[in-house]
Amino acid sequence: AAQPSKKTVASRVPFADLCSTLERIQTCKSRPEKTKHFKDFLDSWRKFHDALHQKEKDVTDSFYPAMRLILPQLERERMAYGIKETMLAKLYIELLNLPKDGKDAAKLLNYRMPAGSRGDTGDFAMIAYFVLKPRSPKQGRLTIEQVNEHLDAIANNNAAKNKGLLKKSLLQLITQSTALEQKWLIRMIIKDLKLGVSQQTIFSVFHPDAAELHNVTTDLEKVCRQLHDPSVSLSDVSIMLF
């Protein structure tokens, strides 16, 4: 029998839209503004989810594919990437054919050194963004689902200690992304988004009971699935559970 089409929201949401939301959250100053940008994205996701799955029962789709990129420090399903700034720096120097003793290569390798007035000292992703900007595609084409698939491949290749395939899967990810998307990808891989918003705030905007359910389960997917509907309270869920 034909497999039912596995329609997921994440397979239809461009990664670029998540990145522009993260960019707005990071750049605006006040907490209410920051949470508004996150809430706008989340509300759109939930409305689209309801429309996409309107005739379906037992839907397992949820905000999890996006939430795990917004809170990468809470990732439990995917193993470590085994990638730090220095490895990324060397990969970009090779990929972009940067002269080894050139200015841009030095910026990437010495990203912790104070330089320039932009105040991006120590922020490898920001420094990489300015190096990548003139050299990256202007239009990204990955969906959130595809980004998660590439990150799965990177984590699996790292676990298999296959450096060659790890580099290959990382290249597939970055060569299909704009400089802005790569800035956020780097932060997701390094697991520090520098959003200026706490995990608690993200949880409280997602659902009043999300922080508590995560404390009990430490399972981000379970939090996103069981509290997908903001009108469902944790007590309802626990009754359903037992």
Partner: peptide, 16 residues
């Protein structure tokens, strides 16, 4: 996919 809803009908992303 004709009747499948579209993401850009739910999320307006003014380019940065």
């Amino acid at each position: 996919d004709a009747d499948v809803p579209r993401w850009d009908a739910f999320f307006k992303c003014n380019k940065l």
